[in-house]
Amino acid sequence: MTGSSAERANDKASDGATVGARRRTDTGAAVLDVPVIDISGWDTGGGTGRAAIATAVDDAARTVGFMQIRGHGIPEATVRAFADALDALFALPLEEKEQLRAPSPDINRGYTPPRTERLSLSLGVPAAAPDLFEAFNVGSEASDFPGLDLPEAQYPANIWPSVPGFREAVGEWCGRAGGLARRLTGIFAHALGLAEGYFVPFTDHSLDVLRMNHYPRPAQETTLDRDQMGMGAHTDYGIVTVLWADRVRGLQILDTTGAWHDVLPEPGCLLVNLGDLLARWTNDRWRSTMHRVLPPTDDTDRVVRRRSAAYFHDGNWDAEISCLPGCVPAGTEPLYPPTTVGRHLAEKLAGSRAGRSNENAHREAARLRAAGHD
């Protein structure tokens, strides 16, 4: 985040979008006020309203890389049903959840036990200890796109638990979050001066994944060193992430000075952040922001339970990503070489899930090391 944006605590963009600013909690922790953007008028508003929303999105994408979306249209009943389904899954005994693991870490589906991933390896940066979270992943299947003959290795079948109502609630959430992600890509295109449907050919059989995360409360009351990672530092891999999360301290994002800031979602909002592929497309005009999750704590630093669910809208596995027109200054070369969605995701997932350090994330790794990571 640029220094000028950090100081604009009261600066407002039209349509209710507030530029991010630093503030302090009662405990002295730095909190970043991620801009709130109401998109409810995008489909019905005129040119002026759309321009205001697009301008607010562009400002957030340039300075923070995160935004809070209000007016997303997802009913509260859908949120409650999804949260109940998530609770029911993670309440299962560990031995039952272990039966839901994918046969290989290269298959990005099913259950992930605590202390089996190191997210920082997706950047090629070793972690001192494995991450504390447990997770469950579902995503796009080849059968979702009949007639395209997509490879099942890229679009594997989901693993569903025998939890009553789980598949229905999770399926409903995926439909809603995926719809929001696609709506946002239309807004992104407008903000970048592109045709609103520009990203459709890159996302019409998108490798979307929903990752449900659980940071369980310890069996006995305890305090932890917050340098132990609930989830290690990383950037998201794809185009855009739609995040539902408890309003519990833990999520932090990295600014351009190397400082970490707590981020708390506002009531009724969904957190949205940009992924690596948008950074590549825009030649870093838009930020794929480094973030991590410390062991979730209350105001007295006692470890508490936290839940989140990240819907990753990642693009077609065979789509080639190269710099967008107009994003490379005259006389310079793009910051990133062209890649495909499938190749990029495979390198990232090999680090986080399979423990094979990603050797092609030099720019992202440099940011993390500059922040003091060993």
Rank of each mutant, 00 (worst) to 15 (best):
A361P: 03
D204G: 05
V19E: 12
T235G: 04
G197L: 02
R249G: 09
H373N: 00
H214S: 10
A330W: 04
D43A: 15
A191E: 09
T257W: 05
R80E: 12
A56S: 15
D276A: 07
P130A: 12
T78V: 11
L277K: 03
L92D: 06
D106L: 08
L94K: 12
F82A: 14
A191P: 05
A17M: 10
L271A: 15
R62D: 06
A52F: 03
R115M: 10
S5Q: 10
D318L: 04
D87V: 03
E134M: 10
T185H: 03
E152F: 01
C269H: 11
G331M: 02
S140T: 06
A233T: 00
R249L: 03
F136Q: 04
R8M: 11
N213A: 13
N273E: 06
E168A: 15
D43M: 13
G139Y: 05
E196M: 01
K348C: 14
T339C: 10
A177E: 00
D227W: 05
I74D: 00
F202T: 00
R367L: 11
A219L: 12
L278Q: 06
Y155L: 05
I74Q: 03
G315A: 04
S122C: 01
I239H: 07
I37W: 14
T78I: 09
L251F: 09
E221S: 10
M212R: 11
A56C: 04
L89K: 06
L349M: 11
L278R: 07
R302F: 14
V170Y: 02
